[in-house]
Design a binder for these strands. Sequence first.
DNA 1: TAACTTAGTGTCATGTCAACACTTAGTCTG
DNA 2: CAGACTAAGTGTTGACATGACACTAAGTTA
Lengths: 253, 253
Amino acid sequence: MKPQDTATAAVVTADVVIFTIQGGELKLLLVRRADDPCRGQWALPGDQVRMDEDLDQTAMRALQVQTGVHGVYLEQLYTFGRPSRYPIARVIAVAYYALVPSEKLQLQAAGNAEAVDWFALNQLSNLAFDHAEIVTTASRRLSAKLDYSTIAFQFMPAEFTLSDLQQVYEVVRQEQLDKRNFRKWILAQGRIEKTGRMRRNGSHRPASLFRVKNPHSVEIIRQGRSASANNGVEHGQETRMRPVGQAAAAPVR
Amino acid sequence: MKPQDTATAAVVTADVVIFTIQGGELKLLLVRRADDPCRGQWALPGDQVRMDEDLDQTAMRALQVQTGVHGVYLEQLYTFGRPSRYPIARVIAVAYYALVPSEKLQLQAAGNAEAVDWFALNQLSNLAFDHAEIVTTASRRLSAKLDYSTIAFQFMPAEFTLSDLQQVYEVVRQEQLDKRNFRKWILAQGRIEKTGRMRRNGSHRPASLFRVKNPHSVEIIRQGRSASANNGVEHGQETRMRPVGQAAAAPVR
DNA sequence: TAACTTAGTGTCATGTCAACACTTAGTCTG
DNA sequence: CAGACTAAGTGTTGACATGACACTAAGTTA
């Protein structure tokens, strides 16, 4: 509430889980630490929040330094502050996650061509600090959000096929989807449209290309079906997850 | 990531939006500030994160100091860190929200009987700092979570009627529900059971009392209907929309 | 005992979801 | 140039969930 004299001045960082889809896998960007706590280990890109900088700005800066990309989806995830998460100093991490379309990927080694690489989600070495936990939280959030928002489009390049899009859902959700049902569902939303062009690659029928009508917005889909009906009158009168406490289920009491 | 010498040591606080249902209204607890930035204004209860204290602990402490209650639902919400949100110093607020059952309400003026009071959500004076924004974020989260989790039970006393429970949904969601459909829906979940006792108050038929079978857990309901498909699912935790950028819709690019 | 008040209960139409297989349009190869 | 190969593309149906809708039951009070 109020900064007292006995203040705990902590270092605050913004760390970003940068996701992309590459080669049919969900990957994220890691940086090999050059400095000492955990030197040599892979860690999430991030930096300290500067004095006159918004948290979002710090996250965006970290994102751009590593990937060079602009204008990608970025959202605050959760704040990690266990005192033991960082040795010696008290460092609190405001974690973000970002989605980068595969097309923008080449920019990877933009800044310093130091040790930066993409890793598939399931083959992560042992990450620095509590970054493994942050990654887990981010993956869950991403997967959940695919269901009830249009966030998946944020992975897509300017033009893509329906199979491409379906693959994004399959890779993130880690389950197979039915082709016909998927197409019906995604087209019924009316959020993508044919570009008119075709992609012909392998030795098979070419695929229609689509674009996202509104690529800069992420909307909520599932319009809150909620606790059964509401209005209507009859006879003129009727009328993360992430609670504090153990891992993710029951709050401490 | 790493604390540098040019470090930004910020003050970090945990502020809590404490919700309860009282008199058919969704209310939250505010404290009148005694100290100077914004002295005299109403603000969310909160305190600085101490050096060896987890963020969750700070939030719980703030909760207990003001309400005296133990064992209520507490969940991290979002972190607010605009440099301008606090004059002079850089103060970053990790916001939490808590749900307190109406039964525990009397404990209100437990600690210091200073200025502490419950306010209906729609009649808030002008709050200190960016606390109005925090409250808005918390309300949205709460309302969303009612839909896809069993969080509503956290408002309930040990025994309650179905009408009581329905009222919680109606008050938070701000819409009327159909009695028959609500009962069907809530009972079909199998998460509450009759205690066998009745409550008789007004001059009308008495109501059966119910209890929550598993009052300490908050579960996800809506089992991910997702993008059409075959097998079952798991589920994450989650929140709702809040991409970096303009208010709440489109991420900055 | 009549009036009042909230508790409590079931059906049906509609929409949504998931399961399911074959045809089309290309390329490649023999 | 015909046959094999590959991924694209396309509808129907049954099961289930949702939401609209009205009257009876069991107390209390006048």
